[in-house]
Nucleic acid binder design. Structure first.
Lengths: 207, 207
DNA sequence: AGCTTTCGCTACGAGTCGTAGCGTAATGGC
DNA sequence: GCCATTACGCTACGACTCGTAGCGAAAGCT
């Protein structure tokens, strides 16, 4: 993930077990004490490593939490459920399941807030979390086009804008529902949301 | 805002000017140093008040920032622009203009992140920020119904659920576009989004 | 072997936290 | 006008966290 030198370099290699333990300890600490009271010293103690080891690998709290939270999104995938509606509902439920975890809730929003003043951090978030989500949108869209549920793209640039729009709407709605409204993303809500989105997409989208 | 004892109580009253200065100083500090490096001592110095005065009025950083950011949303209103599409586009642009400010970007998301572990804080955010936004949704919806652009509500409970859904979609999409995707909410995007939402609403929403 | 890098440990100055104590300032009630 | 009550500015404090430096030992590669 942070292999700046993939070539075999001399010396003792960094312990992979330490990285795993540190990221797990970070998530554990996020659950128990939250973002603001999370200290790197505490994380190091929980992981059973020295504080200096932690600082050798991550430059600060922000970067550490991004990596710790990013692992939660590894489970995101998009099996073909046969219809666009089913694909949307499926991926929304998956996303909601991740956001239901307390370590994702407090960690993700906190680093996003920090990224408003740190471009490097924003890029790190984009590369390790956001891009994977957006890929699902593109995939689901192309599947729907093959099924004939959505019209084929004419202008590739226009298609990219539409994909961005859909992504912001889907991810934004789920995040807002979960974190701001603090209401559950249950099957009833997902059906209503998918219906709304589907109607908006199948009709003429470029009003 | 935090008048726990509205009745005239004895003693020297709290300086209203101090509150104004503190909240302004908080926003200024949010712009310059961001959330994580914002210290209450710094805010007190900027506002020209003693640190102890600040602690007498706010229990901590979270509560202070919520109040400081909440004032930014005072300008939100919904003039009748003649059509549902125009109303949606107008309120989205207003919301986006607020989120374009750096003090809103870093401050709002940070307190939302903290609120995942603090119910009292979440309630404070809901009362002073979210509820005002949601009111605009209800207002715009009832106007559209009077114009005949949307069907009248049959079940009031169903209507409340729909309003919540619309609110999460609108606010979530704008927030996500602004903070996560880091792309501007310009008129082109707003038109696309409003078109998507409008199509989704005018068709049968409860799929 | 020898070289290189990581590891755990300890210690450090710097900065922030939230609170306590004090004397002073500004109200309302009598 | 006096007094009780509260807010204010100021100073000082112990506790905690920060990020870094230095050390000897361990673990890999050639």
């Amino acid at each position: 993930m942070q292999s700046s030198t993939p070539a075999t370099r001399p010396g003792r290699p960094r312990s992979a077990a330490a990285a795993t333990a540190i990221l797990a300890a970070t998530r554990e600490a996020l659950v128990e004490v939250g973002w603001s009271r999370l200290t790197l010293g505490d994380v190091a103690t929980r992981a059973g490593v020295a504080k200096t080891t932690l600082y050798r690998r991550w430059s600060g709290k922000n970067e550490l939490v991004v990596d710790a939270v990013a692992e939660l999104f590894d489970e995101l995938e998009l099996p073909d459920r046969g219809s666009l509606a089913a694909d949307i509902e499926g991926v929304v439920l998956q996303f909601a399941a991740i956001l239901a975890r307390p370590e994702a809730r407090s960690g993700l929003m906190a680093v996003v807030a920090e990224s408003t003043r740190d471009d490097a951090l924003r890029e790190r978030i984009r590369a390790s979390i956001v891009e994977r989500q957006k890929h699902l949108v593109v995939l689901g869209r192309s599947r729907a086009q093959k099924r004939g549920e959505l019209p084929p793209e004419t202008d590739p640039e226009e298609a990219a804008r539409t994909a961005d729009l859909i992504f912001d709407v889907v991810a934004g709605a789920v995040v807002h529902r979960t974190l701001v409204s603090a209401e559950p993303v249950d099957e009833e809500w997902v059906r209503s949301f998918a219906g709304l989105l589907l109607n908006g997409l199948t009709a003429d989208a470029t009003a």
